[in-house]
Design a protein around this nucleic acid. Structure first.
Lengths: 111, 111
DNA sequence: CCCGGTACCTTGCATCACAAGGTACCATGC
DNA sequence: GCATGGTACCTTGTGATGCAAGGTACCGGG
C-alpha cells in the first residue's frame, strides 16, 4: 500500500490539532481521549498520545491534575492553559488556510 | 512560535497530495510546480520537492520525460502513471475522511 | 499472594520537510 | 576560449514525530 504512509503523514499535526480542540472545553484523561478520537475515525495508540501530551504540557499549553479512580490507578486529567487556548486559535487559522489551499489546488485542476 | 512546528506537520502528506493532484492533468517540471503551489499559499523549496518527486517516481507513481529548454539545461517534465492516478484517488478519499474527522471534532466541542 | 485490568511512560524505528551546499548545462560578452 | 550569470537537478544533515513493542505501577478479588 503506497498510500498508507502518505495518509499517515496527512494525519500528523492534524492529530495534535484535534487533541487541543477536544481539550478546549473538557477535562479528560488519555483513555477517554482515545475513545473520543476513535469516534471521529482517528485511530491512535497510547504510545502516540503520552509523548505528545507530555510535550504539550512541557510547552505549557496543557495542564493536568490527578484524580483517583474507583477501579485502578489514578488518572491524569488534562486541560488547556491560556497559552493553549491561543495555540488552538493559531491552529484553527492554519487549518482553515490549509483547507483553502487544498481546495484551490483541486479546483485549479478541474479548469 | 509553538505553532510553527505543528503547522509544518499539518502540511506533511497534504503537500504530497497537492503535488499528485496538480500533476493529474498537466505535465510540469519542478520550478513550475513550485509556482503552482505558491499561488495556492503552499510555500516549498526545491530541496523539499526533488527528493519527494524522486521517491514518487521510484514508486512508479510518476513518470517523466526530458525536454530541452531554450534558456538553460533540460527539464524533467513529470506526469502521473496509471498507478499514480489510483494513488490520487486514494488520497482524495483520505483527505475527505480527514476533513470529516476534523469537522466532527470541532462540532463536538461546540455542543 | 497471585492475577487480570487499568493507567502511565520509554525506547527504537522509519519517515519526511527544510536549509544549505554542490554539480552541471546554456547563452552572452569579451 | 573562457569568464559570468542564470537555470535546473540533486544530496547531505538536522530535527520532529507517529507508531509498535515493552516496561512499571496501582488496584481489587479470590
Amino acid at each position: 500500500m503506497e498510500a498508507k504512509n502518505t495518509i499517515t503523514q496527512m494525519r500528523r499535526g492534524i492529530l495534535e490539532f484535534c487533541i487541543v480542540s477536544v481539550l478546549s472545553d473538557q477535562e479528560i484523561y488519555t483513555a477517554e481521549l482515545i475513545d473520543r478520537l476513535k469516534s471521529a475515525n482517528l485511530i491512535v495508540t497510547d504510545g502516540t498520545l503520552y509523548p505528545l501530551l507530555n510535550r504539550l504540557q512541557k510547552a505549557k499549553l496543557l495542564q493536568y491534575r490527578w484524580e483517583e479512580s474507583a477501579s485502578g490507578p489514578p488518572r491524569k486529567y488534562y486541560s488547556l492553559t491560556e497559552a493553549g487556548e491561543e495555540f488552538l486559535t493559531q491552529l484553527e487559522a492554519a487549518w482553515q488556510d490549509i483547507t483553502e489551499s487544498v481546495d484551490s489546488i483541486l479546483e485549479g485542476n478541474n479548469a
